[in-house]
């Protein structure tokens, strides 16, 4: 347990320090949101129609940014050897790493999402739903993204590969989250979309660490 604690602290310090993981993702997200009115026009009605969707999709894209480094840096400098031989199973290591990625990147993005959404002329009543979908979707993005990062270990230009592997797997949570947001805006019940999103996130948290560990072992061998 002591080892796992130390690992989580290290992962958070690596994600927050040096290279500015959350700041980079937030800056990317802000730029994306700021560019939308330039491309789609300033008409508030039109922005209000596409704004929440773009703010939501932007979360998925911004969470891709620092995924490449999640396992790659430990693989290159030999820390993954140490982690693989450690006191806890590699599955728990993967869970801790993806969890730290969520805390360092996806959670701050989820908190920023309502700001972006309102800037894109979405009604303020959507704020709670935007944060909720952002957090649930963020869990899915971090863990499914971690799987892509582990699979791309050792590949040249792994960052692009991660995006190509992961984006199709981002489709279900993007659809579920958009459905929940849409329902909330139209005054109908968003429960179905939220439940599906939560189910996807739970499956990702439960299953991807096993696959990440297998991919890491394979890369080390």
């Amino acid at each position: 347990m002591k080892g796992l604690n130390a690992l989580i602290r290290r992962e958070l310090s690596l994600a927050y320090g040096g290279g500015g993981g959350p700041l980079l993702a937030l800056a990317f997200y802000a730029s994306l949101v700021a560019l939308l009115p330039l491309a789609a026009g300033r008409n508030p009605q039109m922005l209000g129609a596409v704004g929440p969707g773009v703010a939501w999709l932007g979360l998925a894209l911004a969470s891709l940014l620092s995924l490449e480094r999640l396992f790659e840096r430990d693989y290159e400098d030999g820390a993954l050897d140490l982690l693989a031989m450690g006191p806890v199973p590699l599955e728990a290591v993967a869970l801790a790493k993806a969890g730290a990625q969520f805390l360092a990147v996806n959670a701050p993005l989820a908190v920023a999402a309502p700001v972006a959404s309102i800037a894109l002329a979405a009604p303020a009543s959507l704020i709670p739903m935007t944060i909720l979908t952002g957090l649930l979707g963020g869990l899915a993005f971090a863990f499914v993204g971690g799987l892509g990062a582990a699979l791309a270990l050792g590949a040249k230009r792994g960052g692009l590969l991660v995006a190509v592997v992961v984006l199709p797997l981002f489709a279900p949570p993007v659809i579920f989250g958009a459905a929940a947001l849409d329902a909330a805006r139209n005054g109908s019940s968003p429960v179905t979309g939220l439940l599906l999103l939560a189910a996807y996130a739970a499956a990702a948290v439960g299953l991807t660490p096993i696959a990440m560990a297998a991919a890491c072992r394979n890369a080390l061998d």
Binding site: R10, S13, L14, G17, G18, G19, R73, D74, E76, D77, G78, A79, L80, D81, L82
Partner: peptide
């Protein structure tokens, strides 16, 4: 070994 797993930013 050669790859000591030490993080250069810490």
């Amino acid at each position: 070994g050669h790859q000591d797993g030490l993080k250069s930013s810490r």
